[in-house]
Amino acid sequence: MVLGQRIRALRKALGLTQAQLAESLDYEPMTISRFERGEYSPGFDALHQLAKALGVSLASLLQFEAKEPLGAGELRHQLCDIIYETEDPKVLMGMLKAIRKAKGDG
């Protein structure tokens, strides 16, 4: 299930639908859905293709717990996940203000 959540998070961070990701890999959209829900486990070749399509290394795709500080790319993915899951404009505005303040942009 954790791998499926990771696939979903990376896909969403790229702004891809399951159908778009599936098409890029020559899979059926239902296959991507099943990977994400943990119903199917992708084999090694599929994992390699998924990592490439999602723009991460295979090791990064399989990394479930960060043992070292996260890099900028991974942090961006996590921020994007949170932002895409947030529907409230007031919350989004608060996030934007906090980021600008942290960067020193006001």
Score class of each variant (00 low, 15 high):
52 K>E: 14
79 L>C: 11
4 G>L: 07
82 I>D: 06
69 P>Y: 08
72 A>L: 09
90 K>T: 08
15 G>C: 06
23 E>K: 08
30 M>Y: 07
38 G>S: 10
43 G>F: 01
86 T>K: 01
11 R>S: 07
21 L>E: 11
49 Q>M: 04
72 A>S: 12
64 F>K: 13
44 F>M: 04
27 Y>C: 00
63 Q>H: 03
106 G>Y: 13
48 H>R: 07
93 M>V: 01
104 G>S: 13
99 I>A: 15
75 L>S: 11
57 S>D: 12
73 G>R: 10
68 E>T: 13
84 Y>C: 05
51 A>Y: 02
67 K>N: 07
47 L>W: 01
73 G>Q: 14
96 L>A: 15
25 L>S: 01
32 I>P: 14
65 E>K: 02
24 S>W: 06
47 L>G: 06
99 I>P: 03
93 M>C: 06
69 P>K: 12
42 P>I: 00
27 Y>Q: 00
62 L>A: 09
47 L>K: 05
52 K>L: 15
95 M>C: 13
101 K>S: 10
2 V>C: 01
59 A>G: 11
70 L>D: 06
33 S>W: 08
4 G>H: 06
75 L>N: 06
3 L>R: 09
83 I>E: 12
62 L>H: 07
22 A>M: 05
64 F>A: 13
78 Q>T: 05
36 E>Q: 13
46 A>D: 05
29 P>Q: 12
68 E>G: 08
13 A>G: 15
60 S>K: 02
19 A>Q: 15
18 Q>M: 15
62 L>E: 14
89 P>Y: 08
4 G>F: 07
85 E>W: 01
97 K>R: 15
50 L>F: 03
55 G>V: 11
86 T>Y: 09
90 K>I: 02
30 M>E: 15
